[in-house]
């Protein structure tokens, strides 16, 4: 059984690698056919530029600036979203009260929020608020639905045996929320990065990834634009992997007690 699932994992990795190779090959063909580096840089040029920018001393400062802002927004959304979802489960009226707010945040285009909030907040901190706002409804809805779908039979058992609230959360709600928490993290990390960088591109705070993307755009430097995009994708994927490994580690530590 274990061997089979390991084999499937290797096969799935192989398939992913092959599909990435095919996409890159197609990109190279289109770039060669266009022959307009300002419009579409080839993957080879992008990789070269990527290595150039990685070894520049501003690179890490730029990455740390954007990473710190976006991850703060993301973590705040996780904490506040979870708290609000738990309170909404307990108090129906709060759920009703939050319904229009969450629906509006979900429906309004991120650009509208960026422009609206830019009036009130400094460019350096806007990506915190925007990534927070984009992730909050995902966390809130996911956790609330997760709590609502907790096994009613286990909750009845807890009621009969007078299990206290702390143990109910620890032994019933948290294990039941595990799939939701993992899927929320994997979806919302990407959202946080997309919206956070979009906020930076529009408000151009000095020394941010958005600033670099904006400069690359106005100088028609397609190589650098795509190289920074690759950087965003890699950081976002790494961040997601670290978060989900951390959550799995936490679960492993207390499950099986």
């Amino acid at each position: 059984m274990y061997g089979k699932s390991n084999k499937n994992k290797v096969w799935s990795l192989k398939q992913k690698f092959i599909s990435i190779l095919i996409s890159v090959a197609l990109w190279q063909i289109v770039a060669l056919w266009l022959n307009q580096p300002a419009l579409l840089a080839s993957p080879i040029d992008v990789i070269k530029t990527l290595f150039d920018i990685i070894f520049k001393k501003e690179f890490w400062a730029t990455v740390i600036f954007s990473f710190s802002k976006i991850s703060v927004g993301f973590l705040l959304a996780i904490i506040i979203g979870t708290l609000l979802a738990s309170l909404s489960y307990k108090f129906d009226k709060l759920e009703l009260l939050l319904y229009p707010f969450m629906s509006v945040v979900k429906a309004v285009p991120v650009v509208s929020f960026i422009i609206l909030c830019f009036i009130w907040i400094k460019a350096e901190n806007l990506s915190v608020l925007i990534s927070f706002l984009m992730v909050l409804p995902i966390v809130y809805t996911g956790i609330l639905n997760g709590i609502k779908s907790t096994d009613i039979k286990l909750l009845e058992m807890a009621k009969v045996f007078k299990i206290n609230n702390f143990n109910k959360i620890k032994y019933i709600y948290l294990p039941s929320l595990k799939p939701q928490i993992l899927s929320i993290c994997s979806v919302s990390v990407g959202f946080a990065w997309k919206s956070g960088v979009a906020a930076e591109v529009i408000t151009i705070p000095n020394g941010s990834i958005g600033d670099m993307l904006y400069k690359a755009k106005i100088y028609l430097n397609s190589n650098e634009l795509l190289a920074w995009t690759v950087v965003i994708v890699i950081i976002s994927m790494l961040f997601e992997k670290i978060i989900s490994k951390f959550i799995k580690f936490l679960y492993q530590r207390y499950e099986g007690q």
């Binding site: 058992m157 045996f161 294990p175 499950e255």
Partner: peptide
């Protein structure tokens, strides 16, 4: 003390 028709145990715990 109630033994339900189903066991109703917290499956991930000892």
């Amino acid at each position: 003390g109630y033994v339900f028709q189903e066991n109703r145990l917290c499956e991930n715990f000892s």
